[in-house]
Design a protein around this nucleic acid. Sequence first.
DNA 1: CTGAAAGCGCTAACAT
DNA 2: ATGTTAGCGCTTTCAG
Lengths: 351, 351
Amino acid sequence: MKSSERRMTVYDIAKEAGVSASTVSRVLTGNGPVNEQKKELVLKILEKHEFRPSSVARSLKARRSRSVGFIVPDITNPFFSSMFLEVETRLAVAGYTVILCNSESRRERELEILQMLMEKEVEVIVLTGGIVDDLFPQPKMLRDIEKINHRVPIMTLSKFPGVRCTQAYSDEKQGVFDIVRHFHEEGHRKIGMIGGQMDVRQAFERKIYLLEAVNQYGMECRSNWLVEEGFSMQGGTRAMEKLLSLPERPSAVFAYNDVVAVGALSVIEKHGLKLGRELALAGMDGISLTESIYPGITTVAVDYAAFSDYVVEFVMNQGKGEQYKEDRVFPMHLICRGTTNVNRDAVHPVR
Amino acid sequence: MKSSERRMTVYDIAKEAGVSASTVSRVLTGNGPVNEQKKELVLKILEKHEFRPSSVARSLKARRSRSVGFIVPDITNPFFSSMFLEVETRLAVAGYTVILCNSESRRERELEILQMLMEKEVEVIVLTGGIVDDLFPQPKMLRDIEKINHRVPIMTLSKFPGVRCTQAYSDEKQGVFDIVRHFHEEGHRKIGMIGGQMDVRQAFERKIYLLEAVNQYGMECRSNWLVEEGFSMQGGTRAMEKLLSLPERPSAVFAYNDVVAVGALSVIEKHGLKLGRELALAGMDGISLTESIYPGITTVAVDYAAFSDYVVEFVMNQGKGEQYKEDRVFPMHLICRGTTNVNRDAVHPVR
DNA sequence: CTGAAAGCGCTAACAT
DNA sequence: ATGTTAGCGCTTTCAG
């Protein structure tokens, strides 16, 4: 059983229909007039052979590939997979195809991938993680990226200071303030934070915002209530263990992100603390895990739909050869669930 | 600021170096001899312009795209993202690029995507979910897929009876038996199962295997201890709620997959049941969530590495124009964690 | 060792 | 309305 028969070409079809290749092309694309009779005939033959024009050839001719590149550190991370799902789904509708690459946040990998995507002539590159979130990036790397951006438009899904490319991101300050306010309203006055790593911009910023908010609401946050331990679930677990081992501890904890919050939740459950009253917990991002785990995790959610609409808009505009789009900041949405409420079941109807 | 300068071609380089395009091509590919002097020169100019040959043009010429298509129902599902991560990482090393498409398991979408990927001339299509797992697939659809497989080799990551294409899957029977044996060894005699949906082959089969195993070990399983409710975490939650509301219930529960198990775990925690003794729980797939959540979830894991090695092997062989590869069955690996052990902390050191 | 020329599959002027 | 031709950017015979 052989793997693949020789690919048919428009010429094969043309010959069989007794017309020229251009005519076939015309019925294929719908550009230019074709006699009804011939059109029917060609269509029939096309159908018969289930002919599909090579989009490689088309891309070469048209000099647009109708594909975009998407770089994530690790697609296994729910934040990125959610983002990708939304973006890919929308782009597919628009006739685009998405090449997904995992960079592991390694700088050389990111650069290699960027090159590879350039070679593939993707029309847009969506870049997340790694260098983008680096608090102290190498200037050389930044310049490299700008150079690449000059050839194929790059869009980042977080703030990327120092680089002239289109950036879409959430209003994280607002998000953090929403959470802290919520903590305050629930009667908490001692706030801690877990997760993150200080050479990552978002982690740094979220911590700053937390401190600002805590200060503004006249709450307390001791320096040993800020426990980093990274971005993973395990990191959340470790951080929460440390926090709970303290002689005096906060009554509300902001987790760097939802993944960390899930890890932390385990520990709280394990220690048998009463969620919401004895210890409140909130995350950030709005991954679906937060609502499907018991008890729901309070979080401030990214507007995935808005983000991906913007990506699509960007891609489409690119096609039309337009200018760079403006950076865009999207509001975040507070979602209160079991981890910050006294009455767990009231807010998390299991069913 | 304009978006993109005109793409350079080998001709531009050639002109600047005072050589022919073929020479440039030769230094680019390393095929054919080139005078050292000229080579140096060309290289320098290539470097200067940071020239990258168009892989679209290359693909057209070479009639191979060095890209593969990967279809999943939903990349947000940890099983698929884990699979994708492994596969993509390995293929990238081999110089391949992966187009990822979410099908939502919708049949028309799947077909559209398949067509699209054919047009893109991907060298291999990895197909998961949807039609592949359909217990009662439409014969027409099967034939369509076979036809496509005739043009571009398709590889499925689960059993796909009735279709002649390369298939890689886990030995799920062995997996289920491992779990049931483990339950038995832990002293359980009443077994239930949650999750799944009977028109999905894997769900059907796992249930059958469970019943066989339960029978073989002389255990008990009542029909109302088999609660479906789908594949999601919420489904797991619902199913476990139902199970717990029964007057008499099993002491050990096999969840269709890890995601369902996570959902079920919430409910057990909520009801304050003692995991492992009062109620044991095990899942299937081996997604990383099972080890990062507290207490670790016992599961029987897919060998992601072996799967992806095989995919890579398949892709590479395809390139060499070889025959179809044989179907391959991979063993699953039982991993015992907190949800089936009396002493939770012993098996799940929180560190 | 190197260049000219052809061609991958398609589409878009340009002629007719 | 239709066919001829050229060319997208690259590689690869084939001569030289």
